[in-house]
């Protein structure tokens, strides 16, 4: 791949928005991330609260998927393997760069435990963003993660003010059940990302058997 093709590839995906948005969110996280805001859900007594960093990390998590969108649409759909390889590398690079840098910033600004929880949440939201992007288009990758936020905030805490086992954005950093949920969502997203229509078609067990027997 030549430099100019790479430049065009990155330009079409408006890749500069990623670092800008992640940098801004990181700054905001360091400054106000630890602030507790009210979460309007009924608990036994008083009002549930949540720290601001919990939701800010979602914005970072969906960036790699959102920035896969390209205005060329169908023109790129029939591209050869080299193009897809570059796209996979671009996605992997974005994930490492954005999620990694935010985790480091959170670690320095809010502490190690918080950074690990943020990383776990971002991994889960990235999986949902990939799923959402494959279902509705990359520019709509934010849809399922945003819906998941409503579910997490409203049902993630029981009336005894305890986070339920699947609450991957709030359970303690060493909680394995929520880590499994986050890992599962990430794997699901990765599998859906990998399973483009032709892959699904060609790897369909029946077709595969027929093809091999030919």
């Amino acid at each position: 791949m030549s430099i100019e093709d790479l430049r065009t590839f990155l330009f079409l995906r408006r890749c500069w928005f990623g670092p800008v948005v992640v940098a801004l969110v990181s700054v905001v996280t360091v400054v106000v991330g630890h602030h507790e805001v009210a979460n309007p859900v009924p608990i036994a007594e008083g009002v549930a609260t949540l720290p601001v960093w919990r939701l800010l990390s979602l914005i970072v998590a969906i960036m790699p998927a959102v920035l896969l969108h390209s205005p060329l649409g169908e023109l790129e759909s029939a591209a050869v393997r080299e193009y897809w390889r570059v796209q996979h590398l671009y996605l992997a690079g974005s994930v490492v760069l954005y999620l990694g840098s935010f985790t480091v910033v959170a670690w320095l600004g809010l502490g190690g435990d918080t950074a690990l929880i943020a990383l776990r949440a971002m991994i889960a939201w990235l999986g949902l963003a990939l799923l959402s992007g494959r279902m509705f288009g990359w520019s709509r990758s934010w849809l399922l993660p945003l819906v998941s936020v409503a579910i997490l905030l409203f049902w993630g805490m029981d009336t005894g003010s305890t986070y339920v086992w699947w609450e991957f954005s709030a359970r303690p950093h060493d909680d394995w059940k929520s880590a499994v949920v986050a890992g599962g969502l990430a794997l699901l997203g990765a599998a859906i990302y990998w399973a483009r229509s032709w892959r699904r078609h060609l790897l369909h067990p029946l077709r595969r058997a027929r093809s091999l027997s030919r």
Binding site: M1, S2, E4, D5, T8, F9, F11, L12, S70, P71, L72, G73, E74, L75, E76, A78, A79, V80, R81, E82, Y83
Partner: peptide, 30 residues
């Protein structure tokens, strides 16, 4: 590698030059 395809309504980025657009197509096609 062997197929060139143009849909009826195709997308393009208005900021690209014609050369960049076609060069990108060459890369897409391998």
């Amino acid at each position: 590698h062997r197929i060139g395809y143009l849909p009826q309504a195709f997308g393009y980025d208005p900021s690209l030059t014609v050369q960049d657009f076609v060069h990108y197509a060459a890369w897409i096609r391998g």
